[in-house]
Write a protein that binds this DNA or RNA. Structure first.
Lengths: 230, 230
DNA sequence: GTCTATAGTTCGATAGAC
DNA sequence: GTCTATCGAACTATAGAC
């Protein structure tokens, strides 16, 4: 956003977008510290000095790259969530699918930039560095609040504290999908494929739904009263 | 392990362990690329050259640090799992508690080294870099196979593919606990605290148990047949 | 085992021409 | 808006004395 030129959007592949695309791919593969401004400039086909002209510092380049795609993904999620509730109260599964699928799909869009962002957002979300925490707070907290209240609407018994905790657990399950490392394939003897996003989401949604319903049923308050834990 | 000196263990705080402790703390806070050998040497109170004398390269130092605590954590998990099955077939909740709690507890041990490792293992587990994947495979795949078969024993209806997927989803939920960023506090208006590990595990276990039971019930096979998704 | 000193590389950022 | 050239700092790793 705020392109600086007259064009706000379009097919014109300017150098600014080329830099952001290259940065997204390289940052996702090697992290913030592991990626050099030199390598980004080379991948984008521009001089290194141009990166500093457009973004000032490496940190601001990272933040703009992160915000750019976060906004696209969250706009798609909010739009789907709104259209869901426009037709009445949706099912829990529909809400969870709306939460997880756009991030997965847009994070794996191979056509442009793609396939890298979902991995990147996992490492930023798990990072305790204040800069990473600020990036998550700015880009994802408003969305989180929308979905937490949506969860409470579709699951009447769910208390707010459990909705928040449950939301974060769902994000944790989603992280498994967003960072396909090949481990699922290895551990399953190649019977499963963690690169098969559709299948992963199709399993993650009912898993998360069952977990949340157990919260709504009031199963957990103090040490699982009748579950027999320890 | 393989200390090099006559001492295999003990109170003797040799420089080798001091280096590993400092490395654990700094790598967890700033990542592999973001941590310099200089800063580790300084934190350990030794010359930088000593790091290379003991470990050769930065990469091998990281691997030894990672393996050291992984072995301690997984030994505790296996020991608890074995003692659980020695008394008959445990509950699903007991198995999940055994999977999650030692990593959390040992990862948050403030007394020595501590509190850092659990954050570190999250970033390594989510990393797609072949070196990180190898570290996870070497240190955690044997444990994963043990727990996956344990899940199938305590949940008779659970197919192996779903057990593997479910195991990874549980690890995803656990990641939420292992990387406390303060986000839970913020989103809940300080009604919850993600630094309260006990409470987090007490909620994560029933959440994960409900998710796994839904797999065992055969609720998911092809697009959630009767759930009404989309 | 532990140190000092340093070689050799790469980094983020800037200056200044066009 | 884009480039070439370069500064000064930081990095990993090694050499060699003790």
């Amino acid at each position: 956003m705020a392109n600086g030129t007259t064009l706000t959007k379009g097919a014109k592949a300017n150098s600014r977008d080329a830099i952001l695309d290259a940065a997204e791919r390289l940052f996702a593969n090697s992290g913030f510290e592991g990626t050099s401004m030199r390598s980004i400039a080379e991948a984008a086909g521009v001089a290194q000095a141009l990166l500093h002209y457009h973004f000032g510092t490496k940190e601001r380049l990272f933040a703009e790259m992160f915000t750019r795609r976060s906004e696209a993904i969250n706009a798609a999620r909010i739009k789907r969530l709104d259209s869901l509730f426009a037709q009445g109260v949706p099912t829990l599964e529909e809400v969870l699918d709306t939460l997880l699928r756009p991030l997965i799909e847009l994070g794996h869009d191979e056509s442009r930039g793609g396939s890298y962002f979902s991995r990147l957002v996992v490492s930023v979300a798990a990072d305790r560095d204040p800069r990473s925490c600020a990036l998550i707070a700015d880009n994802y907290d408003p969305l989180a609040r929308r979905f937490i209240s949506a969860l409470m609407r579709v699951l009447p018994g769910l208390k707010e504290a459990d909705a928040v905790r449950g939301y974060l657990f769902v994000i944790g399950v989603g992280m498994t999908i967003m960072a396909p490392t090949g481990r699922l394939n290895r551990l399953s003897g190649d019977r499963c494929d963690d690169a098969d996003i559709e299948s992963m989401v199709d399993h993650a949604v009912p898993f998360a739904a069952a977990g949340l319903r157990s919260f709504a049923a009031g199963a957990v308050t103090a040490g699982t009263p009748e579950g027999g834990l320890q």
